[in-house]
Structure formats: structure tokens, C-alpha cells
Amino acid sequence: RGFLEKAAVKKMAKAIMADPNKADEVYKKWADKGYTLTQMSNFLKSKTAGKYDRVYNGYVIHLD
């Protein structure tokens, strides 16, 4: 289950990176699912340092 969630989160993160207008909708879905910042950090780990920082930081702001 965790692997599928991670894959889904990364897919949506890539969608945000391609079209930032989708961010609020995606952040709301993640918040509704109760994803914590720790979970998001783990889901968005990448071999490329900083690749998903913008998405993660946007989610931090959304939760605030």
C-alpha cells in the first residue's frame, strides 16, 4: 500500500510541476487524506536533491 501511495503522490507532484495551477486542488486532496509533512517528505524523496522541494514547500504553506 505504501508503495502505491508513494507512486501516486509522485505522479501528482509531477503534475504540479508541469502545471502549477493544479497545486491547490492536489494539496487539498493530500490534506483530506491526512498526509503529514513527514509522510510527504518520505513520499517525495528523490535521487535528485531538491527535485520536489517546490511541491513540498507549497504543501507546507497549504497546511499552515
Score class of each variant (00 low, 15 high):
13 A>C: 05
55 V>S: 01
16 I>A: 06
50 G>M: 04
8 A>W: 15
26 V>D: 01
9 V>C: 06
50 G>H: 09
32 D>L: 11
20 P>N: 06
43 F>S: 02
15 A>G: 05
43 F>L: 09
33 K>R: 10
39 Q>S: 04
61 I>T: 13
45 K>C: 15
30 W>Y: 02
15 A>I: 12
1 R>F: 10
53 D>Q: 06
60 V>Q: 10
29 K>E: 14
34 G>F: 04
55 V>I: 12
19 D>W: 07
54 R>C: 15
19 D>H: 05
51 K>M: 10
13 A>D: 01
52 Y>D: 00
5 E>T: 08
46 S>D: 14
54 R>I: 10
47 K>E: 14
60 V>C: 10
25 E>K: 08
29 K>N: 12
64 D>F: 10
29 K>G: 08
5 E>C: 11
34 G>P: 08
29 K>D: 14
52 Y>M: 04
30 W>C: 03
63 L>V: 05
52 Y>I: 02
44 L>Q: 00
41 S>N: 10
33 K>M: 13
40 M>H: 00
12 M>K: 04
39 Q>M: 13
21 N>H: 10
36 T>S: 09
23 A>Q: 05
27 Y>N: 01
57 N>A: 13
7 A>K: 14
30 W>T: 00
13 A>M: 03
25 E>M: 11
44 L>K: 00
43 F>C: 06
23 A>H: 06
27 Y>R: 00
11 K>W: 07
47 K>I: 06
3 F>M: 12
37 L>F: 04
6 K>H: 11
32 D>C: 15
59 Y>N: 01
64 D>Q: 15
45 K>R: 09
21 N>W: 10
38 T>N: 11
26 V>F: 05
38 T>Q: 14
42 N>W: 15
1 R>H: 10
6 K>S: 11
47 K>V: 07
18 A>G: 07
4 L>D: 12
23 A>N: 02
39 Q>A: 07
51 K>I: 09
2 G>M: 12
25 E>Q: 09
22 K>A: 08
45 K>E: 13
9 V>P: 01
22 K>H: 06
57 N>I: 10
38 T>A: 14
21 N>K: 12
1 R>A: 13
14 K>H: 09
64 D>H: 12
11 K>I: 10
